[in-house]
């Protein structure tokens, strides 16, 4: 929590416009009604940069990161698959198909901002079903074949999204940038959209944390201890997909967050999901906040897309996990 607060402070203070630190905080504090000090005046554009752009963007990074990390811990727990995350399962791509469709063809006016995540949720679910069906070919679902199915579906869906983008006129640049994962050109509306999901999602997932612990022992053990296995799996998968859909609708496909964060947390605190779930939400916020801060400052004033930053960190991490699994299985230590 402290680390999260600290990261917010630092990230708020860094930016491409080169505002002095004191001004940034002066403006922010000035916004609080009981702190307003009429003697100080700032430029209207400076106020806008801080409150409209920077603050909203920082909060968005925190919430998107929290959603993705929660979804990752949910997928990993229910599937008992350490390599699962919204991105590697193809769910994020599935959501992006729905979201891109809405954005490219301009149906966003239908029920306002909410229409994008709702449609993204629908296509994300369909994708999850397809990926499961592909990997379950011979009865059991093994760890690698599930991820392989995810990658295949992801490649296909990526092509569909690119095709839709080429068909559209005008908004290509914006959509392409969103696709690669980005938090630029987002506003307070988006913060309002994602905040309830991140805030409700955490306790909802936490309610199933002990169930996920029992899943570690196997589905039968869980069933004999009174867990309604099928219902629990369904609910956790739905929550995870919904959190993914909301995050994708806002930030595009930001890969590997749901993989990296719960793993790091697990390394730090052990296997108990009652600790992993809440810390993943906080850790996801911190992780994405720093990733986004890097994205907008490294080549300042140009921006790198956020998805590029998380992939550069996440893909090698994924490779390492895959390698470690192979070593463990080769050694036969724990099958």
């Amino acid at each position: 929590m402290l680390l999260l607060a600290g990261s917010i402070v630092v990230s708020l203070s860094i930016g491409s416009s080169g505002l002095p630190l004191a001004d940034v905080w002066g403006i922010l504090i000035h916004q609080l009604p009981w702190m307003s000090d009429p003697s100080k005046q700032w430029d209207a554009s400076e106020i806008a940069i801080v409150t409209q752009l920077r603050l909203s963007r920082v909060l968005l990074a925190v919430f998107v990161g929290a959603c993705l990390a929660l979804a990752g811990s949910g997928f990993q727990g229910v599937l008992r698959n350490p390599l699962a995350d919204p991105f590697t399962l193809g769910v994020a791509s599935g959501c992006s198909v729905g979201a891109a469709f809405m954005i490219v063809f301009g149906y966003t006016a239908w029920i306002g901002l909410w229409s994008v995540p709702i449609v993204a949720f629908g296509t994300g679910l369909v994708t999850l079903v397809i990926v499961f069906a592909l990997s379950r070919a011979r009865g059991a679902m093994n760890v690698e074949s599930l991820i392989l199915s995810g990658v295949i579906v992801q490649a296909f869906l990526g092509a569909i999204v690119s095709f839709m983008v080429s068909m559209s006129q005008g908004v290509i640049n914006e959509v392409m940038f969103w696709l690669m994962g980005s938090l630029s050109t987002r506003s307070w509306e988006h913060v309002q959209l994602i905040m309830p999901f991140a805030i409700v999602g955490s306790p909802l997932m936490f309610r199933y944390a002990q169930h996920l612990n029992l899943f570690v022992l196997g589905e039968r053990h869980a069933a004999h201890l009174g867990v309604n296995v099928e219902r629990t799996k369904l609910i956790v998968l739905l929550i995870s997909t919904l959190l993914t859909a909301v995050a994708v609708s806002i930030a595009g496909v930001v890969g590997f967050v749901g993989l990296v964060v719960p793993h790091l947390i697990r390394l730090l605190v052990g296997p108990d999901y009652r600790i992993i779930v809440p810390l993943s939400a906080i850790g996801g916020g911190i992780y994405l906040l720093w990733a986004d801060t890097l994205a907008r400052t490294v080549l300042s004033p140009k921006e790198i897309s956020l998805g590029v930053v998380t992939a550069i960190i996440g893909a090698p991490f994924f490779a390492y996990l895959l390698y470690r699994r192979k070593v463990q299985q080769g050694g036969g230590a724990s099958a």
Partner: peptide
């Protein structure tokens, strides 16, 4: 088969 290998 009892309890599977787990980090608990």
């Amino acid at each position: 088969g009892g309890i599977p290998a787990a980090a608990f």
